[in-house]
C-alpha cells in the first residue's frame, strides 16, 4: 500500500499533514485502519481544546476494539471532521483524505520534524 510522502507519521500510526495556511491535518494511516477493522465510532476533542504532542485526543472504536488517538503535535484544535463523526466508515474508506480527524493550529511547526517520514513509517509497518 502506498504511503503518501507529503506528510509525517507517528509511531502510533497517526499522520500529520502541514497545510498551506500552516495548520496541520491529522488522521490515521492505511495500516492503522486495516488493523482496526470496521470503524463504528470516533470520539474527537472539542474545537478550542489545547493538545500536546503524544497526548490523547480521542478514541477510535471498531467492531472489535477501542484504540486511543494521540496527537502528533502540540497545539489547538481548530476543526474536527464532522463527516467521520456521522460516517465513521470514512476512516476505513479514505484514511488519508476524507477520513481525516482533526485540524490543529500547531504551537511549534518544528515538532513535525520529530515524526517519521513516509520511508521510515513504511519500514515500521513493513
Amino acid at each position: 500500500m502506498a504511503i503518501p510522502d507529503d506528510r509525517r507519521y507517528s509511531k502510533e500510526h497517526e499522520w500529520a499533514l502541514v497545510e498551506e495556511s500552516g495548520t496541520v491535518l491529522i488522521g490515521i494511516s492505511e495500516f492503522a485502519q486495516a488493523e482496526l477493522g470496521d470503524v463504528v465510532y470516533v470520539e474527537l476533542p472539542k474545537v478550542g481544546t489545547q493538545v500536546t504532542q503524544g497526548g490523547p485526543i480521542g478514541e477510535i472504536e471498531s467492531v472489535k476494539a477501542v484504540s486511543d488517538l494521540f496527537s502528533p503535535v502540540s497545539g489547538e484544535i481548530v476543526e474536527v471532521n464532522e463527516g467521520v463523526k456521522a460516517n465513521p466508515e470514512l476512516v476505513n474508506e479514505s484514511p488519508y483524505e476524507n477520513g481525516w480527524l482533526v485540524r490543529i493550529k500547531p504551537d511549534d511547526p518544528a515538532q513535525l520534524d520529530t515524526l517519521l517520514d513516509a520511508t521510515q513509517y513504511g519500514a515500521l509497518t513493513a
Binding site: G37, D38, V40, V63, K64, E89, N92
Partner: peptide, 9 residues
Amino acid sequence: PVQYEGILA
C-alpha cells in the same frame, strides 16, 4: 479467522 474482507461487509 475473525474476518476476511471485514466484519460489517
